[in-house]
Design a protein around this nucleic acid. Structure first.
Lengths: 249, 249
DNA sequence: CGTTAAATTGAGGAAGATCAATAGAGGTGG
DNA sequence: CCACCTCTATTGATCTTCCTCAATTTAACG
């Protein structure tokens, strides 16, 4: 069923995120087939759910604009944040095994997504084996991402976690061709704290310090990186003991 | 190429782990086809590498006996442990995107594995679409596992982490039909500490406490769970504040 | 413009890290 | 099979980082 394409409703071929959602590329014809099954949803408002834990798994979602946080709750009712997703990211892939979403996905801002019905994607995959590989790629990247996050949680102190978080967001903007030294980040400091295993107070204190030291400023959803090298250095791993702390190449 | 099947070299059909590696089941015929591509390797000795970071990705590995730790190194040279894998687990799936292993996998003990060459698995998948689903299942479980680990790292204190670790190992043995209140666990306490984001000293102190309280004893690679309920309770999530700490159902 | 949620700032405390010294395992070679 | 050597685990004393609690200030949104 053909849809009317607008600026907010572009076909995959015209979508600037094409190379990000499907980086190894599809032929024009394959792209058209994919385009036919993709469902462009009305933009989500801030705090609106894209899906919730317990929902039946129907589609993968490619983010076209805005941002999404993926989270769950511990048995104790605390929020556990698993990641923040930006345009070009694909989410929902963790529900593949159980066919039920295990996590919640909430818009951080006005957000538009493409829904890719998984059964139809599967059918299409028999005609475009390449497509299966794409899905596998996205999943294995997700596994690797998770392990990097575990590294952050087990090996880094609060300063390093925050520096790494900001720098990793910057890199993601950079890789998508956006400004990466100044960008809007609709993430609550409280949510960053949760994601990084810290308290809001600690995040606030460290951001104050980073601002004072003219490394990075994050005020009112706007991030300004003043000293890229300093930030990367803070984020990176170091050989440290009580006597010295030498930066590693 | 037909292989001679021995007790250490059983076909998939005769392998007791069949339902664990491929839980939704394959037909006899499908199983035979899978069996033909599976490569049963000679057992690995303790501390021998199954694969290393940087190795070209060729095969997935299904663990038949023994155990494997998957780890990497931080830029600072510290070991980062991402998981311990037991018979019936499949590893290597994180290398799918890059076609290069990003992690190291080392035998914790004498360990035998089945190597499943991924290209041949892929070819077979075009004939057995079901098989692709199995691979996706394993991957998405891996993603979910990683998020549970992040929950542990962000939300639990040292006692809870250790209780949860031991209990989760017990559950894995249980689900595979082994003794789960007494089992051999060839994992160094030091490695557990690394995995849980703690120090060996802390692990040692808490294990001493758990032994004293007759909850669980872990000495010389042998785990004995004396009080299953207490262990589960310690591992679980609690509503806590400074005045009370009520267990949640 | 008023109301509510989020962020900031300070003081005090606790969990776990660090440091150091000893005891115990496990593996190797005589 | 035992003695030795090394790696791992244990135990205690001290210290640091980050959390907790409480009080304001600031921002967000109808």
């Amino acid at each position: 069923m053909a849809e009317i394409k607008t600026a907010f409703n572009a076909s995959c071929q015209n979508c600037g995120l094409q190379k990000i959602c499907f980086p190894t590329g599809l032929t024009q014809n394959e792209m058209n087939q994919l385009d036919d099954i993709v469902n462009r949803k009305a933009p989500l408002q801030k705090n609106q759910m894209l899906f919730s834990a317990g929902d039946k798994f129907v589609s993968l979602y490619a983010i076209r604009a805005g941002g999404v946080k993926v989270y769950s709750f511990s048995d104790g009712g605390e929020e556990i944040i698993h990641g923040f997703y930006l345009p070009g990211d694909v989410i929902g892939i963790d529900a593949l095994a159980s066919r039920v979403h295990m996590f919640n996905a909430m818009a951080l801002d006005v957000t538009s997504v493409c829904a890719v019905p998984f059964n139809e994607l599967n059918d299409l995959s028999t005609k475009i084996p390449h497509l299966t590989q794409q899905v596998l790629n996205i999943m294995s990247k997700e596994v690797v991402e998770g392990r990097l996050h575990s590294e952050l949680l087990t090996k880094k102190n609060a300063d390093q976690r925050i520096a790494q978080f900001i720098w990793s967001m910057a890199e993601r903007f950079k890789s998508r061709g956006y400004h990466y030294l100044e960008f809007r980040l609709s993430v609550l400091h409280r949510d960053v704290a949760t994601y990084l295993g810290l308290t809001p107070e600690t995040v606030s204190r460290i951001l104050a310090k980073l601002h004072q030291e003219k490394v990075v400023t994050w005020k009112k959803k706007e991030v300004h990186i003043h000293d890229e090298n300093a930030l990367r250095s803070l984020a990176g791993n170091h050989f440290c003991d009580s006597h010295s702390c030498a930066k590693v190449v």
